[in-house]
Design a protein around this nucleic acid. Structure first.
Length: 563
RNA sequence: UGGGGUGUGGUGUAACUGGCAACACAGCAGAUUCUGGUUCUGUUAUUCAGGGUUCGAUUCCUUGCACCCCAACCA
């Protein structure tokens, strides 16, 4: 085994330390679980996966793989009210898209019978009882932080009576909410989780897999550790908020007739990102309020949205591996994730020329009607991606930003009298411009230097800028969706408590641009670089619609910002 | 209020049993470049606070402080 694993995307730098990895290695060296490692990723099928889940998935799957173990995908479907098959399919799809293949897809509901038997076992051994009180009463009796709990009047019911009542609960004799099965733990425990938690509640509901077989359903705590044990999970990895549940997790396992090893729960910090929210409630609200278009709106942090936006799965995986695993609650800057996205796309995306805010450039000394073919590299980072030909003429679209009637300081682009290079073609010098009645630029005029066909000047003249262009006669129309951060604040909701107060008003701008003909051949879902602008993902369904995945680093924007 | 967890540059993550606080992102400066991209070089900046032990403390002890989690028949 390699003692110092390296980050796959950065072979020269050590992987971020990961206390979970260290712990599993220590277990292996100590012979715990006989060297076996098994994990699970246990989502509840009641919503779509987001970037936060990506970290958990990454941790669960990579730890198992690293130690030669398996990781299963287990749907934690113990609550029939919120769960649907639709989400099961979507979650499995997202996990696979991320690049992980579960050793097996299982369900907590697969274990309902075993769980039921073990519940009877707890009753028989005096560790569980049926409580007839309602939820409010039980909750009130639990006491508060620092306050004592009050034991239920039914806490000392006989085993026979408990068994009878529990069986009748299961048989459907009682109404929802009328009774629960509770663990007989410790009503004075300083950890509130241990004050006789509910194991089963009555719910006459249809379950997405067990249909109407059951009308009592196990709670999370009662199902989780037991499911782990049944499956042979060794390391049950979860997020920090379950820390206080660990005592209960262990208590249940201690009182059940387990078939094998006792799994161990370890908690780590969940992934939070700046400028976004992952709370299901908030995401739902954004959708219901019409702020975004749906679960796959590219501004959302759901995996479906990121996929649609063009984030490569590899970038997300590398990011997750890079940030490491710790117990510190923290919020990573979205900029770091974006760096991984650019890093991946820079190596893989084909370059194309597109003009998003077109203005016309007329080359006044160009022979009328003449068309030239210029050859451009598809990807300067990878010669294997070859080249393409693009039509060049005397009338082009250029980016509005690439011309200024009056040059700002340090502006290197087109301005009257200045010379720039047109990407892959000639030097042109601006000779003037015309304006619309409203003062906006109508046409920029320039002359080209025929001696600069190869992009350089025989007399050694240099230009400070190269700008992209599209021949007006050969351009194809494109629509680009330009996304800004959904939330202006780094930590949405920090000021007022409600993240929605920090919504940026215009997080989406749709523009109609012009592009070189080769853009017509981009596959649905494929990401290309619009030179000098950013990476854009072709929509999966709507032809010629491109989502801006992420912009390029923009030094000019920095210059302007600095003033 | 009781219990549990966590505090390292602007951000995140490291530092084996106490021994020069490092890596990445961001920033800044420069070089290269037919993308103000990429790449390369340099650089700014860090141990929550007080006290103690020690030749030496991010690490050990102690007292505080701050933040997060827990009183669903949600997960």
């Amino acid at each position: 085994m390699n003692d110092s694993p390296t980050n796959p995307s950065f072979p020269d730098t050590p992987a971020a330390a990961n206390f979970v990895r260290d712990l599993v290695r220590a277990d292996n060296e100590a012979g715990t679980f006989a060297g076996r490692v098994q994990t699970r990723f246990p989502p509840e099928p009641n919503g779509y996966l987001h970037i936060g889940h990506a970290k958990a998935i990454s941790v669960d799957f990579t730890i198992a793989a690293e130690f030669g173990g398996v990781c299963k995908l287990r749907f934690d479907d113990t609550n029939p009210i919120t769960e649907e098959s639709e989400y099961v399919e979507a979650i499995l799809d997202d996990v696979r898209w991320l690049g992980f293949e579960p050793a097996e897809v299982v369900y907590a509901s697969d274990y309902f019978s075993t769980l039921y038997q073990w519940a009877e076992h707890l009753i028989n051994t005096g560790f569980a009882y049926v409580d007839d009180q309602d939820g409010d009463t039980i909750s009130a009796q639990r006491g508060g932080y620092g306050n004592p709990g009050v034991e239920s009047p039914q806490r000392d019911r006989s085993v026979a009576e408990n068994l009878d009542l529990f069986r009748r609960m299961r048989a459907g004799e009682f109404a929802d909410g009328s009774r629960v099965l509770r663990a007989k733990a410790d009503m004075q425990h300083e950890n509130m989780q241990m004050r006789d938690p509910v194991m089963y509640r009555i719910r006459h509901e249809h379950h997405h897999r067990t249909a109407d077989d059951w009308c009592i359903y196990p709670t999370y705590d009662w199902a989780h550790g037991q499911s782990d044990a049944i499956e042979g999970v060794t390391h049950s990895l979860c997020t920090l908020e379950f820390d206080s549940h660990r005592a209960l997790y262990d208590w249940y396992l201690e009182h059940c007739p387990l078939p094998g090893d006792t799994p161990r729960q370890t908690e780590f910090a969940r992934l939070e990102l700046t400028h976004t929210v992952t709370s299901k409630r908030k995401l739902l609200q954004l959708i219901n309020d019409g702020v975004v278009d749906g679960w796959d709106d590219p501004r959302l942090p759901t995996l479906r949205a990121l996929r649609r936006r063009g984030y490569p799965a590899a970038a997300i995986r590398n990011f997750c591996e890079f940030i490491g695993v710790a117990r510190t609650n923290s919020r990573h800057q979205i900029e770091l994730l974006e760096w991984f996205v650019r890093n991946e796309l820079n190596r893989t995306a084909l370059r194309r020329m597109a003009v998003l805010h077109p203005i016309k450039l007329v080359i006044t000394n160009w022979p009328a009607g003449h068309v030239e073919r210029v050859t451009l590299q598809n990807n300067p980072e990878d010669a294997a991606d070859g080249s393409r030909e693009v039509a060049f003429t005397g009338e082009l679209f250029i980016e509005a930003d690439d011309f200024m009637a009056e040059a700002a300081p340090k502006y290197f682009r087109l301005t009257p009298g200045a010379e720039v290079r047109l990407r892959g073609a000639y030097f042109v010098r601006c000779t003037g411009f015309t304006t619309h009645p409203d003062g906006s630029i109508a046409e920029v005029h320039a002359t080209y230097d025929p001696a600069t066909r190869d992009g350089s000047s025989p007399d050694g003249r240099k230009v400070k800028a190269t700008i992209h262009w599209v021949s007006t006669a050969h351009a194809v129309d494109i629509t680009a969706a330009l996304y800004e951060r959904l939330f202006a604040a780094e930590v949405p909701g920090e000021r007022t408590g409600d993240p929605l107060d920090d919504l940026r008003p215009n997080s989406l701008a749709v523009v109609h641009g012009k592009a070189e003909a080769a853009l017509g051949a981009v596959d649905p879902g494929q990401v290309v670089q619009f030179e000098r602008l950013g990476y854009f993902a072709h929509d999966g369904e709507q032809p010629m619609l491109f989502h801006r995945t992420v912009g390029l680093r923009d030094e000019w924007a920095n210059v302007r910002k600095r003033g």
